[in-house]
Computed example of a mutant assay.
Amino acid sequence: MDIGNKLKLLRKQHGLSQRELAARAGLTNGTISLIEKNRTSPSVASLKSLLDAIPISMAEFFSIIEEEDTSKVFYRSEELIEISPSSQGGVSLRQLGNAENHALQVLHESYEPGADTGPEWLSHEGEEAGIVVRGRIEVTVDGAVTELQAGDGYLFDSRLPHRFRNLSDTVCEVVSACTPPSF
């Protein structure tokens, strides 16, 4: 997916200059320019800040069109929507279906060794829960830090500042859910 061009189109549709968007998102104009030209990939947290500044949710940004007359029930691995490819900082977030059409957002998350959600804290409406399927992940929620391993889980009010980091030397996989879809 061409994140840069999609962001540029969205920014222009909302009548924002690169400078205005940068100021609203707390980023530099140069960073916006590099992202829009696909010369750099935003961290998950930076992209969230950009989309909040427009405003549009990540679910809306990465939505796909589902058939109107038939609701899709089953999805193959290749049909999951790549919200953040692993080439963008080692974090891969793949969404199940079009979150705009549902009250629940489900993600398959993969964190390469050393990867994290970025230096900015994440915060969004709703509740978030997940279970570590493989590996270990450090989760910080409102200042509380713990390392979870396969079989462990989390559940919290996602308005609280939070972040995820893989401090181990192996890939970590998490299946998570957020309601309402706001990430």
Rank of each mutant, 00 (worst) to 15 (best):
A144R: 06
E67W: 09
D116C: 07
M1D: 04
E60V: 03
F74H: 14
L47S: 06
I64V: 15
L167P: 12
G126S: 07
P55A: 01
E82D: 15
L104F: 13
R76D: 12
R19W: 01
A23W: 02
R24G: 07
S158G: 13
R39G: 08
A22T: 11
C178R: 05
L51S: 06
A25V: 11
S158P: 13
Q88T: 14
P85W: 08
V73P: 00
T146N: 12
G89Q: 03
P181N: 09
I56N: 13
I131P: 03
R165S: 15
V145C: 14
F164C: 02
L27R: 03
V133W: 01
L47M: 12
S123Y: 01
F61D: 12
E120T: 08
D52N: 11
I56Y: 08
I3R: 08
D157S: 08
M58K: 05
Q95A: 09
L10P: 06
S33N: 14
E120H: 10
P113T: 12
S63A: 12
S92N: 14
L122N: 09
P161G: 04
Q149C: 02
E100S: 13
K37A: 15
I3A: 08
S43Q: 05
V141H: 05
I54Q: 13
E128H: 06
E100N: 15
R165G: 13
D152C: 06
S41G: 07
T146W: 04
F74A: 14
Q88A: 14
P161F: 03
F183G: 15
E20L: 02
A144K: 07
P181W: 04
S87Y: 03
R163P: 05
E20W: 03
S77H: 15
L34C: 00
L21G: 06
M58E: 05
Q18L: 09
T179P: 06
M1A: 08
N29C: 02
N29A: 06
E127M: 09
H162E: 08
T40L: 05
E147L: 01
R19V: 04
E109Q: 15
P42T: 10
T140Q: 00
G26N: 10
Q95N: 05
A22D: 09
E78W: 10
E109N: 15
R134P: 00
Y75M: 06
C178F: 01
L96D: 03
A177F: 11
F164K: 07
T179Y: 05
L160Y: 14
G151S: 05
D52L: 04
I65R: 01
I83F: 10
E109L: 15
S49D: 10
S158Y: 12
G4D: 00
S87H: 07
G15H: 11
S33V: 13
P85K: 11
T170M: 08
S41C: 01
R24L: 03
K12P: 02
G15D: 09
P113I: 11
R39I: 02
R163N: 09
S176A: 05
H124N: 05
F156K: 06
P161S: 04
L50R: 05
D142Q: 07
Q149E: 11
N98W: 00
A150I: 14
R19G: 04
G153M: 11
Q105Y: 01
I83M: 12
I56H: 12
F164N: 08
C178L: 07
L34H: 02
I137T: 00
K72E: 11
Y75K: 07
G97Y: 04
S168A: 13
S71V: 09
H124V: 07
N166I: 12
L16R: 02
I64Y: 07
A177N: 03
D69P: 08
